[in-house]
Each structure stands twice: as structure tokens, then as C-alpha cells.
Design a binder for these strands. Sequence first.
DNA 1: GCGCAAATTCAAAGCGCTTTGGATGCTGCT
DNA 2: AGCAGCATCCAAAGCGCTTTGAATTTGCGC
Lengths: 349, 349
Amino acid sequence: MNLKDLASQLGLSPTTVSRALNGFPEVNEDTRRRVAEAARNANYRPNARAKGLATGRANAIGHVIPISSRHEIVNPIFGDFIAGAGEVYSRLGYDMILSIVDDEDQDRAYREIRSKGNVDGVIVHGPAENDPRIPLLAELGLPFVVHGRATGTTLPYSWVDVNSARAFRRATDFLMDLGHRRIALVNGLEFMDFAIRRRRGYVEALAERGLTADPELMVQGEMTETQGHNAARAMLRLPDPPTAFVTSSLLSAMGVRRAVEEAGLVMGRDVSIVTHDDDLGYLKNGDGEPIFTATRSSVREAGRKAAAMLIDLISDPAPTPRNELLDAVLVVGNSTGPAPQSKAPIGKG
Amino acid sequence: MNLKDLASQLGLSPTTVSRALNGFPEVNEDTRRRVAEAARNANYRPNARAKGLATGRANAIGHVIPISSRHEIVNPIFGDFIAGAGEVYSRLGYDMILSIVDDEDQDRAYREIRSKGNVDGVIVHGPAENDPRIPLLAELGLPFVVHGRATGTTLPYSWVDVNSARAFRRATDFLMDLGHRRIALVNGLEFMDFAIRRRRGYVEALAERGLTADPELMVQGEMTETQGHNAARAMLRLPDPPTAFVTSSLLSAMGVRRAVEEAGLVMGRDVSIVTHDDDLGYLKNGDGEPIFTATRSSVREAGRKAAAMLIDLISDPAPTPRNELLDAVLVVGNSTGPAPQSKAPIGKG
DNA sequence: GCGCAAATTCAAAGCGCTTTGGATGCTGCT
DNA sequence: AGCAGCATCCAAAGCGCTTTGAATTTGCGC
């Protein structure tokens, strides 16, 4: 069932039917009703490709997921981001096109997307420092919104990001207020922009109180349970072990907790943990009362915001870069408590 | 830069250029080379919409992700499945179109997809018992492959699935071989097909040794850390607590472990755990030696298989249903050991 | 009853590609 | 020389929609 069929079935021209369905003013209200009803009955849906060809708009947004051996980006947060964005897309009649692209092929992939013309814009995931995709997309003239920011980029561009530095500064401050001085950082890979900012927030908070970050207490890596476990186990064996941890993900925090318990210590009493929590659908920080004290910011919400921003950008004839900085809230759970009195570890002065 | 431009730039007709690029035989090899080179230099890429319109094929596969209040399917395994499928798509020149659709709208969504004509086929995710999508898609004549199966469906259809029943039978057998008799099941939601099969495998294994499944030792729910924790905590307080757990996901298993440790018990000695492990990129069951004894089957691999199967199905003019049953392997980690001698719990019985 | 503007409707072109059904030239054979 | 057969190439139609420009109808003031 196509436009022509529908039109001839109604005894109208395709022109009129098209206009009736697309809400143009120059069509009689009676006719419009008739058309709408016939379309509904016939279960008519305009062919997306033809529509796209005719209008020049694809009504679709692209997401390019880099995948590589360097870092496994089949990221737990990706699903939630997509879900948030998807809500907006389906509400506004957009399709979402996903491309899984090898890291080295990114340049080619974006150019191809551009010339294939099946999307009106793209969302950039997981920006790194000086991310080359930003100048590339600007050059290609393809509208885009970055989920995160890219330190070092001078070009203006649109983004939605969490105030990572601020979140980690608050987390660190919170621990210092509780008397902690040896605070470890279990971070994501530090070529990723968010990880850079988180470390900065952590380092600055320490510095403000005259402390310097101890390299032995900072690790970076894939944010997995194992990472947290390995890092914490090693650190807790140091001569002067940390009394608190700041971690970049709930999974890492869970790993830290396991190491804490294996060491015969009690979380929230002997060792405190503050984690960042992306508030994922399937990885909740407890239902109701939080398990971990955390800086929380919903990735799904970020997905919604980014999608809405991009569509806004696309429909604006002379778009100027937009951006939105989301603040994480600090929720207090059972993983934090006052620093243990420094009955200094045995054997230490 | 479009076909016409490229053609006139080469002094050829669009027809010839099209044929040259698409590998038709009736074009001179010299011409073909010239065309190919010019296309490369101009960074020419055929417009996907126009091509689709002309050929009637979309060169895209749809994935409809149901999202609902009933169950949060922003599923941790989804990302990995997509990654696997995406590899195949990009290799074969297909796009992946994701639709996030409200549960109640599924019927409408599939019909819409059908008539919008922007995909050549779809992958069905998370089939439930008697899943209505299967007859619907068959009726619509839209090629599809199911990730999983749908108990109760009589129509033949194509699927890729893990032998869940067998995996859980083996897991249960393994524990019984170690002497366990009180074995709990922490399962996914039992309107999902995989959960039904897992329970069946578990129940059958018990029955084969003359045991009947104790309803008190079976729970179903979202497979989260909290679920595992809550379930295990409750069960470990029973007068006759389980000595072993079979869980449906690594996250649940992590929750069970936490409850075990909170109860002052040792995993692998006092309480054994076998879990199913989807071998996700960011949620590894240890690196190298497994943490948990597990039935392991890569969801990413399943994604690859399903994608390849669907494309195969699409290109076959008279497709007959295909299917592929993957077997999970049992990997032995540190979470299992002989059942403790029944020096019944202190203060009990 | 006439002219003009507003309200409706339509025919046809065009989006960028593929594909059908010829053209055109050339070779080799009779 | 004449023709079949092959290798190449091309013009034009068509995919299903939107949109431009024009035609037709209607309403209204005089």
C-alpha cells in the first residue's frame, strides 16, 4: 500500500493525500479526515526511504560505537544511554542507526556515513583527549552532539556531560571531612576525557587541603569488578594503606569491597568507599537506600538530553553549539564512615 | 557528489558508472578501473536511500528493544549481543536500526517497521513463552531470527539459542556430584523463555536423583546483584538452608556471594555457587582462572551467529527456517567444593 | 452577472539510484 | 559485402515520496 494506491482509492491526487497527512494548511478539513481515516484503515505508512529521498532528511540519528582491542567499549553504560536516546527518537519519529566500527576505521566510517546520507546527525560516544572525531565532523558538516567533552579541543561543539571534576571533588571532600587522608582513586582509562576530569577533581580536592596525590594510590583501567579487586588488594597491602577509595564505577566499587572483606576489614568502618554511579537499569546501587555512598548521575537521562539536543540542532537552520552540564548528586550509603583513629598500622611510625 | 556528477565528470552515463561500481560484467575492464579510481578520489558513496528505493532492499537490519515498566530490559547482555551482530553487519555492508519500543506498542511497532520498509529483517530479542511477535512477523512476511526460543510456539521459525536446560542440568548435576542436596535456584523472570528452560533443567536434574525442587529454594526476578543478595540472605536464614546456589547471571552470583560472606560463611567451602556466565565484555568472570564455577556461553558470539543467519535468510529466495543450538561449557572456578558434612547449623535442629 | 481573492485540488518534476530495452561498433564468418 | 554475435555503452523509466506552479472551484462585494 503506497501513496498512489491510497490516493486513487480515495479519488484524490497523491499531492493532496501527502499534504493531508503531513498537516499542510491548504487542504479541506473534511478531506483531511477522510484521508486520515483511510490511511489508518489501510495501515498505511509512508516509505521511509522515499520520503527521505524526497525531503533530503533521513529522520535518523547515527551512533558510531568504536570497538577495539585497546579498550573494550562494549560498555555497560552504553545500553542505558541508548535507551534514553531511543525514547526521544521514537517519540519524535526518528530512527536510530548503530554502527559498530573498528577503532582504526573511524575516520572512514564517519565519512561514509556522511556520504551515504542515511542519518541527519550523529552522537559521539566516549570522547578522548583531543578527540579527532570532533574536527572531522565539523569539517564534514554533519550535525553532532558529544556525550562527554574532549579536553584540548578548541573548536566549539555541542555536548552533554556530567560535571565529573566537581563530582569527584565533592566525593574526595566528603571523605576528607570524615577525617580520611589516605584516599585512593580507582579510575577509568585516563585517555578518556571523563577519567581525566575525575582525576583532576580528586587531585584538586586533595591539593586544597594541602595533600598531594600519591601515585601509589591511583590506578586507571577498564572499570570492572576485577579491576577494583586487584587494585584494592594491592593497595591494602601497602605499608601505609588507604582508608578510603574513590572509584569510577559501581563494578569497580564492588571489586574494592570484595578485596576489603577478604582483608578481614569492614566496609564503612575500616575502609570507606565512594563511587560514581551511572544509575544503570540493571546495576542499581541498592534499591531504596544506597549500598555505596555515591555521586549519582543517570546515564539514561544523559541519553535523553543528548538526543533532544541533537534533534534540536538539526532542525535549527543556523545552529549554534549548545551544551549541558549535568550535576551528579551525592547520595550517602553505608560504605562510608569516619576515618579509623590512626592507631597506625602496626610496624609503622 | 552523486552518481550523475561522477558520470558526467568521467564522460560516461550514470548507467555505466552504476554497473561499473556494482560489478556487472558488461563493462570494459579499463572503464571499470577508471570509474573505481574516480569514485575513490571523489570519496563517492552511493546514497543509501536512493539505492534502497531503487532496489527495494534496505540493507539494514532492525532490532526492536522492548522497554517496559514490567521488566527493565536495558539488559546488560544487550550491548554484547549488539556488538557481535554489528561486527557481521559492518562486514557485510548492513546497517543496524534500533528501535526502543514500549512493551504495549510492540505490535504496532513491527507493523510500522514493515510498512516503513527501512529494514530487510529483524532480530527478536528476549522471547517469552508463546511470544506473540513470532506469529506476527510470520504474518507480516518480514524475515526474522529469534535470539532464544519461544516455548509453546508451533510455527517453524529461525533462532539462535543456548541450550539452557542442558546447561542448568549440568550445573545441578555438578553440585550433586559434590554431595550437595539442598540446592537453590536464583533465576531470571520466568515468563522469559530462557528462564523457563533453566528451571526445567534444574528441576529435571534433581528429579533424576530422586530429589524434588523445594519452592522455598527457587526465586525468580530481575537478575541483579541485589536480587542475588536478597534471595541468598533469606534462604541462608531458613531452618534448612541451601549448601549451594545455581544462579542465572554473574551479577546475581555476586549478590549471593555477598550474602554468603555477610553470613560469615566461605564461598566454595560452606556454600557453593554455580552461575551462568554470558561472557560479557565488561563483566568477566575473572581474568584467566574463573572466579565462579559457571556455565559459559558468549552472547557476543550468539549475536554474530544470529546476524549471519538473518542475512543468509534474507538473501535466500525461498528460505526455510534455520536454527542453531549453542552449548554452554562448564568452567570450574573457586566457588564450588564438596558439600559440607551435615554438622547441622548451630542453634538449629 | 462580473471580477477578484481565497480555498482546494492537481499534474508534473525531481530526489539519486537501478534496470530494462535498446543503440552502436567491432569482429569474424560465409 | 553482408550478417550474426559480442562487447560496450546509453536513454529513459521507475522506485514512492514531496513540492512547485498552475488549474479549478467557491465566496463575496459591487
